[in-house]
Design a protein around this nucleic acid. Sequence first.
DNA 1: CATTTGATGTTCT
DNA 2: GAACATCAAATGC
Length: 201
Amino acid sequence: MSPKKLDANFYQRSDVVQISRELLGKVLCTQFPGQPLTSGIITETEAYCGRNDKACHANDGLRTKRTEVMYRAGGVAYVYLCYGIHHLFNIVTNVKDKADAVLVRAVEPVNGIDSILDRRNATKLKPAITAGPGRLTQALNITTDYTGIDLTGDTIWIEDRDKTISSKQIVSSPRIGIDYAGDHAKRPWRFCISESKWISK
DNA sequence: CATTTGATGTTCT
DNA sequence: GAACATCAAATGC
């Protein structure tokens, strides 16, 4: 089986938690002009729901310039700047006006490792290179310039390379760094591949 | 090892 | 002005 790019039908389903689980083991790819293909297996995700979820930027229909892209139909990127420094990569899901998204927190490098090391200013491959939401975007050269980009296009996309992750390999836990969300912070909407070392702490 | 702190843009109060 | 879906470097054991 050849690699298969995930299409709009995958992203526009309504269950963002289910999509988060299915994204584990898929391959996030970036290809920029004049640069080699870089990619990594998704090893850690978090689900954010636009309704009744205080942890989500677009909770309860909140619209700002920044969150507007989350209201689009699924299959586009939501890239946003955190703490003024880090670019965080999210996948917008669900249909138009339903502001759900999946945050990708960690990947395991596959293609273009030399470029990844170069972008991260490192010489040796280790989990700290791409395990962490701010790290993987730097490794794959994703910036806020690409917010709203079509994930079925040829710049940033996700492939199914027939690596299957069984439900036994998936560990769920509370989401990270969102204590301000009260009770919602405890929801087990963070998903990791249990045997992978490429997981943020 | 663990803990603290500086960097820093967007959004909300 | 404060808070925030973070990271890396510096400091303290």
